[in-house]
Amino acid sequence: MTATAEKTDSTSEVGAVPTFTVTLRILRHDPEGLDGREAGAEYWEEFTVEAFATDRVLDALHTIKWEQDGSLAFRRSCAHGVCGSDAMRINAKNRLACKTLLKDLNPSRPITVEPIKGLPVEKDLIVDMEPFFASYREIMPFLMTTGPTPERERLQSPEERARFDDTTKCIMCAACTTACPVFWTDGQYFGPQAIVGAHRFIFDSRDEGEWDRLEVLNDKAGVWKCRTAFNCTEACPRGIEVTKAISEVKKALTSGEV
């Protein structure tokens, strides 16, 4: 919504952004048990809001929180698809609430909003991300080198950079990991995101820790748990070819070449 659009909105109908009514069906989780509920109760609650065609699911959640029910809990930070805080299951699919327009979701039917699956729910749409971050830490997501530090930057050709370009786009929103059917049933699995994070360093010509990471991923809970369901690739809000990255790690392990 631009400032000009808002101005014309208040003065005349010319150029006005059309509004519509939309119902959000939110899966809530009440850890404290308020209003006579049991502690930890889960229930669906419907909210109806007026929305603009330019509004995203996040705007509707804001409207609910600010005008209807302040107890609704969800994470968001930048609200523009960069920080990766507001991944949630919208109409049964993982997406970022800040990148999903309401008008693209068939607003004539209630839009379901649930927390991402496979991580413990803390309240409403907020999950405990710690198991997810723990997997990321396991693959050592930092530059590992040997020898003395060079006086100037470590050079790399555009071709060398292109090898891991795709996996540098990750914002760690967990949409991929919590879309993975293997992750839902097996909490031990590192999950797609950790493998994407490892891929970013394994195929970086400046890094020398690739075999340490590949060893971690060769584990029972590593890349071999991937069943190529492609839910991760389809869920990624950054368009990373997650399954392809996992496949490249598998190939490095089978061929012994990076």
């Binding site: 899966l27 049991e38 109760a41 889960e42 229930y43 669906w44 299951r89 109409n91 049964a92 699919k93 379901t112 649930e114 699956k117 879309a179 059917p181 069943r227 190529t228 369901a229 492609f230 839910n231 389809e234």
Partner: peptide, 20 residues
């Protein structure tokens, strides 16, 4: 009470994983 969450709406890949 714990209502059933929705079934994840995966695409062909997810369903073929289930079929397999």
């Amino acid at each position: 009470m714990s209502p059933a969450p929705t079934l994840y709406r995966g695409r062909e890949g997810m369903w073929m994983w289930l079929v397999h």
